[in-house]
């Protein structure tokens, strides 16, 4: 089975985020003075082949800990779903 995976790499709480801070400082000038706590991270999309969802999740966790996120300053949030839903009778068009 193939799984569509979204990895969100985020700076850990307490790690300074100069990009987020700069963005946030510039927002009031654009009329967005109702926005705060801006943090900039990365979103990485990938497709993982695995026999089931649990294994796909474990493989992605390994990938994150080895390369996608640096645990000194980042963590990773993983969301995944089967890439193609199996055809079912009565599936609405």
């Amino acid at each position: 089975m193939k799984f569509s995976v979204l990895v969100e790499v985020r700076l850990l709480p307490g790690i300074a985020d100069p990009q987020g801070a700069t963005l946030e400082r510039s927002l009031p000038a654009l009329g967005f003075d109702d926005v705060e706590q801006v943090r900039v991270g990365k979103a990485i999309r990938l497709v993982v082949s695995a026999t089931d969802e649990q294994i796909a999740l474990e493989r992605t966790r390994e990938l994150c800990s080895q390369v996608l996120a640096n645990p000194v300053m980042e963590d990773a949030r993983i969301t995944l779903q089967p890439l193609s839903q199996p055809e079912t009778a009565g599936n609405p068009a």
């Binding site: 300074a16 100069p18 700069t22 640096n70 300053m73």
Partner: peptide, 17 residues
């Protein structure tokens, strides 16, 4: 060297971007 784990810590974007 930091990413390879030969030295501790890491390097981040400069504070003033």
């Amino acid at each position: 060297l930091c990413e390879a784990g030969l030295l501790p810590g890491t390097l981040q974007k400069n504070r003033n971007l």
